[in-house]
């Protein structure tokens, strides 16, 4: 099993297309590509979070714009959407009890962003909202739309705050770096509690604050061999798993007596 500091994912660069001008007269339209050489990442026993590196390329960049650094790239790694219940504790007779709750549907379990510059320097809040880009612009859909807007707003804010505090929603300003005019590298953080499942990597290209193009790729994050087998067994063969757990305990108890007994 490989060590975990940095997981590097190389790419298929469509560099040829970028370097060799194809049709001399075609108007140059920039676009962006990311591609993953592996479509899965394994979480091993020692996993305590990691940086995931994604490489990508710009196609047909305008050399002048590139030199002036007016291209910006935002890369997002978004976890699988899941329903979430947010609960608020309140004091009842001095004891803190979960009282109010709000259920949201299709909340991305994780959301890691890497950018070339601070988000507010790249484009205006309106564009982010339109693209629903950035954790503060993700639309959290309440399961019960009948609740008062103030309540929904309060629980939405709490949901974002908890996700950020546990590292599941993160922002890495300066995490995207141009290695050359065409090539960039993005580093997104995987939290120690990163959820398993299908993650979606998306790259957004901006030119002088204007959104140009988006490209996406999929990435499967799963537990590695042993951990995965245990997890799958617990869910797919839960009865046999239970029998195994009980037998393991009995054997350990019996062995313990055999090894250490004093009577």
């Amino acid at each position: 099993m490989k060590g975990l500091g940095t997981l590097t994912i190389a790419i298929f660069l469509s560099l040829l297309a970028a370097v060799v001008p194809t049709g001399a007269q075609t108007p140059s339209v920039e676009s962006i590509q990311i591609g993953l050489s592996t479509d899965n990442v394994s979480i091993t026993a020692g996993f305590s979070g990691a940086d995931l590196t994604i490489f990508g390329s710009l196609e047909n960049p305008d050399p002048l714009v590139a030199r002036q650094g007016r291209y910006d790239v935002i890369v997002v790694l978004e976890g699988p959407p899941k329903p979430v219940v947010v609960r608020r504790k309140d004091r009842v007779l001095g004891v803190w009890v979960n009282l109010d709750s709000e259920t949201f549907e299709n909340v991305p379990v994780s959301y890691s962003v890497a950018t070339t510059r601070p988000l507010q320097d790249i484009t205006d809040p309106n564009s982010y909202r339109q693209l629903s880009l950035g954790s503060s612009n993700l639309y959290m859909q309440p399961a019960d739309a009948g609740d008062s807007p103030a309540t929904i707003e309060e629980f939405t804010a709490a949901l974002r705050e908890r996700k950020t505090a546990t590292g599941l929603y993160s922002e890495n300003v300066g995490g995207v770096q141009f290695l050359s005019q065409n090539l960039f590298r993005a580093t997104v953080r995987l939290a120690p509690n990163v959820p398993v499942g299908t993650h979606k990597a998306r790259a957004f290209l901006f030119k002088s604050g204007l959104f140009i193009k988006e490209s996406s790729a999929q990435l499967e994050i799963r537990k590695s061999g042993f951990e995965q087998s245990i997890f799958r067994a617990a869910h797919d063969y839960s009865f046999l798993y239970g029998v195994f757990a009980v037998s393991l305990a009995m054997i350990t108890g019996w062995l313990g007596r055999l090894v250490f007994r004093k009577d």
């Binding site: 609960r87 608020r88 504790k89 979960n98």
Partner: peptide, 10 residues
């Protein structure tokens, strides 16, 4: 508690 809000799966 340090956090009044908690998250859990639905």
């Amino acid at each position: 508690p340090p956090n009044l809000y908690s998250l859990s799966g639905a």
